[in-house]
Amino acid sequence: MNAPQTPPKLKVATCSLAGCFGCHMSFLDIDERLLTLLELVEFDRSPITDIKHCGPCDIGIIEGGVCNAENVHVLREFRANCRILIALGACAINGGLPAQRNHLDLRNILEAIYATDTGLASGTQVPNDPELPLTLNQVHPIHEVVKIDYFIPGCPPSGDAIWKFLTDLVAGQTPHLGHGLIHYD
């Protein structure tokens, strides 16, 4: 009889788009369970590893919505490489705080900031360096740009919620968050 094989570790990538990194901080709030998690997974591209581009992964975790062209490129890289893509937190799921600008015309915002007297950088011009990604007319949740498989709501989701969701998923079960773990705030 063969000895039980250790299953290969799952590859996980994470990133933050138009978010505040709060969801990543909450991820770290799983505390010492991170060590248990590391027995099951290894990290590819992530602020934790500082790897700049992600390779083929089992799970991709995205924090933040899509507010500029670079966000679109990163999100597509994740979608192209990750078998399962998870939206983590309010901004990824419904645009969150950055999307509060959506009822304003972007041109008016840029003008107010760079051109008018009351703006933060009045008298300057709207930055046009090709190195800078252009801003989208509106902020979008990530599921409006690529297909997303799972969603973990919360601003941020608690460490316990992230832990429960990921351990369900890694165990091959449909993830559930019971009362107290699912929240939108």
Partner: peptide, 21 residues
């Protein structure tokens, strides 16, 4: 919100209208 929790609504699923109100 409470009903969203009750029914385990993880995502708004549809595209946002983002109305100006």
């Amino acid at each position: 919100q409470a009903l969203g929790y009750e029914l385990e609504v993880f995502t708004p699923h549809f595209n946002q209208f983002y109305p100006d109100r």
